[in-house]
């Protein structure tokens, strides 16, 4: 299947049926120039990720631990100045080219909805830009699925005329329109206010249940993890230090990095939690 996946479009049906997206040994490095020459600086070291359809995998870790870079390596959209030095992507066990997976097997939701839309195009323009994608009926269906179906004017709005929450919903709708079985969401709620955050998380959880999406959600917010995730991978200094089901991670954290994250989370949310118990 690997050679066929490389050709992307040909086997769209097969890609849509995929059950497991696996990244093995993803490694990313940058380099600094010293008097001796270029010196590699590893940023992500041998990260393995298993995303299964119908399941939410959360990738957590402190800022700078390499979460976003690992995702970028998975999709092969690393920023300039970094390069992938190892790892391979497997779709149902067959090796696949990341470029052939983008938008076909894997859709994405970016962190900042405000900047993720072209300011010169309407929302509907974004949805129908690719002639290979389904047309306005599919668009209406996707918008309805994310709760933007009530207002018929939405497709004609420009990004600056919408709120952050609406834009994030629209981005999820665009991701749904690709009908990709896997969704990578890099901090999808960080730029939103608390109410919008809760709604977007509910929406994502509902989509995973209803459509059997495989969701990889990157976050530093353990509240998001508790609410959404089935399994959790904890990253520290470019490595995955612990992978566990969400419940057992909260109950019995093994690694110091995990305990530090949990302690920080509880310190932040101690007061509301105590009130809730009382």
């Amino acid at each position: 299947m690997s050679a066929k996946v490389l050709q992307g479009k040909v086997l769209q049906a097969e890609v849509l049926q995929a059950k497991i997206l696996r990244a093995e040994g993803l490694s990313v490095e940058t380099w600094r120039t010293t008097w001796r020459g270029r010196e590699p600086v590893p940023l992500v070291r041998g990260v393995d990720l298993d995303i299964r359809t119908g399941e939410v995998l959360a990738l957590v870790g402190a800022s700078g631990s390499g979460k976003s870079l690992a995702c970028a390596a998975l999709l092969d959209v690393l920023p300039p100045g970094t390069r992938r030095t190892g790892g391979r992507i497997l779709l149902d066990g067959a090796q696949a080219e990341p470029a052939a997976l983008r938008g076909r097997a894997v859709a994405s939701v970016l962190q900042a909805p405000r900047t993720a839309f072209n300011p010169l195009r309407t929302i509907g323009g974004h949805a129908t830009e690719d002639p290979g994608k389904p047309g306005r009926i599919a668009m209406a269906e996707a918008f309805a699925a994310v709760g933007l179906g009530d207002d018929p004017r939405v497709p004609d709005l420009y990004p600056f005329q919408m709120s952050g929450g609406m834009l994030q919903r629209a981005m999820i709708a665009l991701a749904l329109m690709s009908r990709a079985p896997f969704l990578v969401a890099d901090e999808p709620t960080t730029d939103l206010d608390l109410v919008a955050q809760a709604r977007i998380l509910d929406l994502l959880a509902g989509l995973v249940r209803a459509r059997g999406l495989g969701l990889l959600i990157v976050t530093h917010d353990l509240g998001v993890v508790a609410r959404l995730a089935d399994r959790v991978a904890v990253m520290e200094a470019g490595r995955i230090v612990e992978t566990a089901p969400a419940a057992s991670l909260f109950a019995t954290p093994r690694e110091p990095a995990t305990r530090a994250l949990l302690a920080a989370h509880r310190a932040l949310h101690a007061v509301p939690a105590a009130e809730a118990v009382a």
Partner: peptide, 26 residues
């Protein structure tokens, strides 16, 4: 370098389409 160009790349758009759809209008 805009995010929406990255978003288009992630969505699988080919470079020429990205240029015509997202860069040229700017």
């Amino acid at each position: 370098t805009r995010d929406y160009v990255l978003a288009a790349r992630i969505a699988g758009a080919p470079p020429l389409a990205i240029f015509v759809e997202h860069v040229l209008p700017g």
